[in-house]
Simulated assay, not measured.
Amino acid sequence: MDVPVLDVRGATKVYGSGETEVHALRGVSLTVERGDYVAIMGASGSGKSTLMNIIGCLDVPSGGTYLLDGVHVGDLDERRLAILRNRRIGFVFQSFNLIPRMSARANVELPLAYGGVKGGERKRRALAALREVGLADRGGHEPNELSGGQQQRVAIARALVTSPTLLLADEPTGALDSKSTADVLGIFDRLARQGRTIVVITHEDEVAAHAKRVVRLVDGRIVEDRRQAPVGVA
């Protein structure tokens, strides 16, 4: 039987101590199966960013357990955690996080370079990823020569280039205009149809409408977990 991509069990996260103690997560359990497309929603302070950091192996829970693709994340040291992040998770951030003086293709190649992939294979895979987001003809352009929407599509190509188990996007349309937002959501829709596992952190109903499932957090707890007929995904 296929193991879930994400299996969070009773996760808690506490910051500070004594009078300054903040409970960011209060016993969150969440399972995401392969091929699911999930939107995690919540207002500021709801715990959604904390949950994203735990899902992305950027932070560890104070209590509970987390398995990524069957791997118990709590058992890993920093080196193995970094390898797991590089190979299993493709990150897409609101601010793109592209290296300014590098070409689009070189930016997309970065995760492969960190993973020790040879130059010729890096170039081939990076060009294929850029083609997948409709930017095959922009590989030689630096970020400042691209629109915001194009920069985010480069960031998506970079996230896809390692063929990750999970695509994790944090407010991916937050810095985009309406047309670029539609372009990016169209890419996610297509990736979902291809069977990719996608988790999007968002506060925007328009973005969440494209997901197959909406999970809503309030005060560190899941208060809603429902399936829906998504916009644009058959």
Rank of each mutant, 00 (worst) to 15 (best):
H203S: 06
T197D: 11
A159T: 06
I198A: 04
D189P: 03
F188M: 11
K179Y: 07
L112Y: 03
G140S: 14
Q151K: 15
L146C: 00
V199H: 02
G90V: 05
R125E: 01
K212N: 14
F188L: 10
M102D: 10
V184P: 02
G140H: 13
S95E: 14
I99K: 07
P172S: 03
K123Y: 04
H141C: 14
A113W: 13
R138N: 05
V92Y: 00
R131N: 14
L185H: 06
A209F: 00
F188I: 05
S163R: 15
A128Q: 08
G90S: 05
E145Q: 15
R193S: 14
K179S: 11
N107C: 12
G139R: 05
V154Q: 04
V161A: 12
H210T: 09
R125I: 04
I99L: 15
G140C: 06
H210Y: 09
A209C: 02
V108T: 12
R122A: 12
A129P: 01
A209E: 03
G148N: 00
L146D: 00
A113L: 15
A128W: 00
V184F: 08
V199A: 04
I187K: 04
L112G: 01
V133I: 13
A192P: 00
V200R: 10
V154I: 13
A129M: 08
G174M: 11
P143K: 09
F93Y: 15
G174W: 09
A136D: 05
G115E: 08
E204W: 04
F91S: 03
A126I: 04
H210C: 12
L127G: 06
R138Q: 10
L160E: 00
L110P: 01
A208K: 07
M102P: 07
P100C: 07
S147G: 04
L166A: 03
